[in-house]
Design a protein around this nucleic acid. Sequence first.
DNA 1: ATTATTATTGATATTCATTATCAATAAAGG
DNA 2: CCTTTATTGATAATGAATATCAATAATAAT
Lengths: 142, 142
Amino acid sequence: MDQELTILKDYLKQKGLRLTPQRESILKAFIENEGHLEIEELFDRAKAIDSSIGIATVYRTINLLTECGLARENSLPNGKKFYERLFRQGHHDHLVCNNCGKIVEFEHPLIEQFQKDVALKHDFILQNHQMALYGICSDCKS
Amino acid sequence: MDQELTILKDYLKQKGLRLTPQRESILKAFIENEGHLEIEELFDRAKAIDSSIGIATVYRTINLLTECGLARENSLPNGKKFYERLFRQGHHDHLVCNNCGKIVEFEHPLIEQFQKDVALKHDFILQNHQMALYGICSDCKS
DNA sequence: ATTATTATTGATATTCATTATCAATAAAGG
DNA sequence: CCTTTATTGATAATGAATATCAATAATAAT
Ligand SMILES: [Mn+2]
Ligand SMILES: [Mn+2]
Ligand SMILES: [Zn+2]
Ligand SMILES: [Zn+2]
């Protein structure tokens, strides 16, 4: 939490923004969780720390956390977004169950390398990528 | 166009739905175009054929085309969707310019194979996947 | 400390893409 | 032609995310 807080502080200072109790509470709620959080879940967890926090502040703060590299934003085909920790956590992509919504993480360095090759070949400066495999998980098969 | 129309007809019949002039016009507008279409663009092209067509019918019809395998739906991080021909067109994924929005297609059979491997390893029945590489295109670099 | 400046907050209005509703219309089969 | 029922276009509704705004609080200056 200390390192993450420092990263946020530095980012805020650099942008001329301020560290507030709300932002600190939302960061804490976010960091405490290891999984994949939708906004409403993060809102609930933040309210458990400070019940007066508003949903608008949660949206604003998760955007700050994404900008400063502490959070990673993922979009689902249904138009919702979910967030997860990015700091000190290996890069990975996701398998998503089309039936129950379960999210499983995987890493594949070779795919990552090929993505870089493709970008290079097409003269793109690769900034980020987004890959998700959709299907039916083992639980839902049965 | 003939083969596509047959596919749509068969799908509609199988579902107990009807072929209408509107659906035929929207299919035509969709097929005529080789690129990546957002709904509003498809709407404009369909109106050029039949000016009385409503936007709701365009939404309804592109969903039908997606269901019967003639169209492929892609989501952008901004929440919009774009569509492209799927029938008799090789599978590919996309490079997207974060600056000008340009979309470049690429194929990488090895990545596709690895995706299948990953799904198998995690006991998922792979149904579809979604991969996009985001960055700065060669034009925008300069 | 006191004050001045300006970012922040929570509530709420707004936006924007997409879907739902509904009365009028028109396929399709007999 | 008739009957049944899917379809249409206009428009209302939805839902996630952002914009607005007056009140509040953090920071810097006095
Ligand atoms: Mn993850
Ligand atoms: Mn394409
Ligand atoms: Zn499942
Ligand atoms: Zn570009």
